[in-house]
Amino acid sequence: MASTPADRKAAESLKTEGNAFFSKGKFSAAIEKYTEAVTLCPDWAVLYVNRGMAARKLEHWGRVEEDAGAALALVGAGASERDAMKGHYLLGLAMAAGGQHARSKQHLRKALDAAREANDSIKDEIWRELASANYLLWQAESTARRIRHGDMRKELAALLAAQQPTDGSAPGANGTLELPNDWQELFKTAAVHDCAVEAPSTFTCPLTMEIFRDPVVTPSGRSYERTALLEHLKKVGRFDPITRQPMTEAQVVPNVSLRAAIELYLEEHPWGWGEVK
């Protein structure tokens, strides 16, 4: 049943009221207004997005998931790209809250790409959430892997010991079973992804000394974390922090290639996500 122009008009004013409640932090009241609007215009995606955003503040994750799903279902049927982006974002958050980190990651990734494409200011927030999701995913996977490898080591050691003739030399000095060096090496190599090490300095900002989140490049060709460089230009002086070449905020350009390289690095060194959260 299509909504009439009068319904739409009423829904619009309900949405405005809802947004007013939202910005005052009155999320339950905002949800009520959006719900009223939804009954008038069930095909208007932004209403689900806004209700989902309010439910997110209240951590009503079931509601968030449902509304994100409803908004995404309207893609191709009136939902804007922004609605779709926020739909993925909300769905990603709801999945993360439910411990489904792998699915959360996929939705947050889609949301981030879309937000960057549109240069929407929400991109930084999405990036932090994506970093958290990736970090939690790594923590869970890495813990499970370490336990599994520990068990495998014991099993292997026991198998090897059982095969050896009992000439009295089999058990290690302290009575524990030890693996031959080659095998120990193998386990060490396998553990590389689970051990946090320091990121290469190419991937860290010389000002914050942390892995880049949003690297920007100056006319001198140096890269810095955007927020740190902007603060420097504002508070210390209008010059490149390393080369001291005079420069202004207007000359700051995103370093998209470095950002992509870092994302590749993070894929292979997922513990690094903990630093960019």
């Binding site: 010389p206 000002l207 740190a228 420097h232 210390v236 002086g237 010059f239 922090p241 390393i242 001291r244």
Partner: peptide
């Protein structure tokens, strides 16, 4: 030192 003729840089 930072400021007018200072040479400090956060780098």
């Amino acid at each position: 030192y930072s400021g007018n003729n200072g040479g400090w840089s956060p780098a």
